[in-house]
Design a protein around this nucleic acid. Structure first.
Length: 579
RNA sequence: GGACGUGUGGCCUAGCCAGGAUAUGGCGACAGCCUCCUAAGCUGUAAGUCAGGGGUUCGAAUCCCCUCACGUCCGCCA
């Protein structure tokens, strides 16, 4: 019994199907979920009305004559063009509580579907610390990974490290010419708050070196290094790798703090230097009539694919024959697709054209599959786009520090009774949770303007609100665990019923998120459950209730706790026992 | 110039893919609720031309067309 609602929905559909047969029609069965006061499932009769040339009201009336939905539904009523089904609350309570209390941490999870999905996300360039402009990538990616695991996929979360780009070689050039950069006074010191992190230690050198790219001799040196690197020069390969690894260490450290982990790290250089996969891709593409050369640089003619713009040439190599990012990405994707049943990428909206071209290339190379992509818009600052160069940047590390600090202030105020260690633990849980929630609750396509007050909001529609409800559940259950022999029929108060119905929707919500690749639905859901619990908490005293009712309510609290915990876990947010 | 995305009360946001029953909720504002399981909570009030215009439909925030605004891309950078 993975999803307690399925049985009810199937029953409703079955009765409608039978009723339609006796009316001689067989249009589709789009069951809707109406507003709570109206019913639990609703069948709109518009389609059938069109087919039978009658008014939807008449059809609803006629259909209802043939409907007997007992015992799953206690009432089926016609309201205008709709047939509204009212769930038998006792039966729902029984099935829902049984499902949750039996499945516990598994509630909301589905059976393995036997498919392996390779989810690439974050894949930030290893030359900068992460900043909040791109912070949606790891959060969306990690949340999707968690959702897809629940839905039954075997998920490989992979970070693709672009260690072949000119930017990475520029960083290494900077490290090797640090004296020159220093004498020019170009290297800015890392923010003292993060000076112990290797990504912050390196960024000054990278920025200083980037400034010198305007100078011809520097550019020539770097270009020469790029070419040697791609040709397999082992000295360059090893120093570039070493520098990238240092920055990566810092990046992964930041992500771990948000409970974001990877199953696999894929290094771009492995696809270029070893195995020659990129060379083979270039050769195959060069043989096609949709590509051509300009000054020895191979390009794809976008005109042939109906893609118009200022420039219709999409370059696949430089004129010295070295590869470009998208070309290497094609080689990487061929490898990726061979390792999974489905490939999914989380990419910034600036990658839309590139992702399309990569998929075009994959098809040109005869691949029967391409990668599916979730695009997200950037987080900008009120002053404009984030830019390290213009000194307009909020680092993820800074955001997390600030969040924990502000959360600590709240905890100090609200819970002076707790020992420091516990208070700090709560501050971390609340602060980091608030960041993740704030990012994930908005649909990915929407652009976000970063505001401290909103990012670190601890009230209303926020992670702490949900965490607080979970802590309230825990608090009650610490005082009384209740009995296994509860009687769900006791749960008749409106607040109890609404909460129960919401709890029953966790599996279908997670499923929807997985299918639509849209994690934000789960955030709304968790908020709704927490909110309904708070109403229940107001209306229905648990510990002081009389015996049979108390056990039923305790079971409901236990079920709420599991549901909130599983929803929060899936969002990558910790569910605290106390706050 | 072309392409993709977004536009919902002062601010943020759900719903849009599969059109339907009074447009979801939060922040902020205002008015209330701690002798009762944690007030990071709860209740109530005010606040909306669903960017604008046209179309399809019995019915449009939702589908189609046009316009406007914002974001992003159209680099032998990534």
């Amino acid at each position: 019994m993975v999803d307690p609602l399925v049985e009810f929905e199937e029953k409703a559909k079955a009765t409608i199907r039978e009723a339609m047969q006796s009316l001689g029609t067989q249009t589709s069965l789009p069951m809707e979920i109406p507003p709570a006061e109206i019913g639990d499932f609703a069948f709109p009769c518009f389609a059938a009305a069109r087919e039978l040339q009658k008014s939807p009201q008449e059809i609803a009336e006629a259909l209802s004559q043939h409907i007997d939905a007992a015992p799953h539904f206690e009432k089926v009523e016609v309201k205008g063009p709709y047939i509204n089904f009212h769930i038998n609350q006792e039966m729902l309570a029984l099935k829902t509580l049984a499902a949750i209390l039996e499945m516990r941490e598994e509630y909301g999870s589905f059976e393995p579907n036997g498919k392996k999905i390779l989810l690439e996300h974050t894949s930030a360039n290893p030359n900068n610390p992460l900043h909040v402009g791109r912070a949606r990538n790891p959060i969306i990616g990690d949340t999707l990974a968690r959702i897809l695991r629940k839905v039954g996929y075997e998920v490989i979360a992979e970070f693709y490290v672009d260690d072949m780009g000119k930017q990475q070689v520029t960083l290494t050039w900077g490290v090797e010419n640090a004296e020159r950069l220093k004498s020019l006074g170009e290297i800015s010191q890392p923010d003292p708050a993060f000076s112990d992190k290797p990504d912050h230690q390196m960024v000054g050198v990278y920025q200083a070196a980037t400034k010198l790219l305007d100078e011809e001799d520097v550019l020539a040196e770097i270009d020469a290094m790029v070419a040697l690197y791609e040709d397999g020069d082992s000295r360059i390969a090893s120093v570039v790798r070493k520098n990238c690894e240092l920055v990566m260490e810092g990046i992964l450290q930041s992500l771990r703090r948000m409970d974001i982990h990877f199953d696999s790290i894929a290094w771009e250089s492995d696809y270029v230097i070893r195995g020659g996969a990129v060379k083979s891709v270039i050769q195959q593409l060069a043989n096609l009539d949709v590509t051509d050369y300009e000054d020895n640089a191979l390009y794809l003619d976008l005109d042939k694919f109906g893609i118009k713009g200022r420039e219709n040439k999409f370059y696949l190599t430089r004129s010295d024959g070295s590869s470009l990012y998208s070309t290497r990405d094609v080689a990487y994707h061929l490898d990726k697709l061979a390792r999974c049943d489905e490939a999914l990428n989380v990419l910034g909206e600036d990658h839309k054209l590139k992702a399309r071209v990569v998929n075009i290339c994959l098809e040109l190379l005869g691949s029967d599959r391409v990668a599916d992509v979730v695009f997200y818009s950037f987080v900008a600052l009120p002053e404009g786009k984030m830019s390290a160069r213009k000194g307009r940047v909020v680092y993820l590390d800074g955001l997390m520090d600030e969040a924990v600090e502000r959360a600590m202030k709240e905890v100090e105020e609200r819970r002076p009774d707790l020992p420091d260690e516990i208070k700090h633990g709560i501050a971390v849980t609340v602060g980091i949770g608030a960041i993740r929630y704030n990012i994930i609750r908005v649909q990915a396509e929407k652009s976000i303007t970063f505001k401290w007050e909103e990012a670190l909001n601890f009230e209303g529609n926020s992670a702490p609100f949900i965490q607080y409800s979970h802590a309230r559940c825990s608090s009650i259950l610490r005082k009384d665990k209740g009995s296994d022999l509860y009687n769900p029929n006791r749960l008749v108060h409106e607040s109890e019923v609404q909460l129960l119905k919401a709890l029953a929707r966790l599996p279908m919500t997670i499923k929807k998120c997985g299918e639509a690749r849209a994690p934000h639905y789960l955030a709304s859901y968790a908020y709704e459950v927490a909110s309904l619990f708070n109403q229940f908490y107001r209306d229905c005293p648990v510990l002081t209730a009389d015996e049979p009712l108390k056990d039923a309510r305790l079971a409901l609290v236990q079920a709420t706790k599991w549901t909130l915990k599983n929803a929060l876990d899936t969002l990558g947010i910790t569910a605290p026992e106390e706050m």
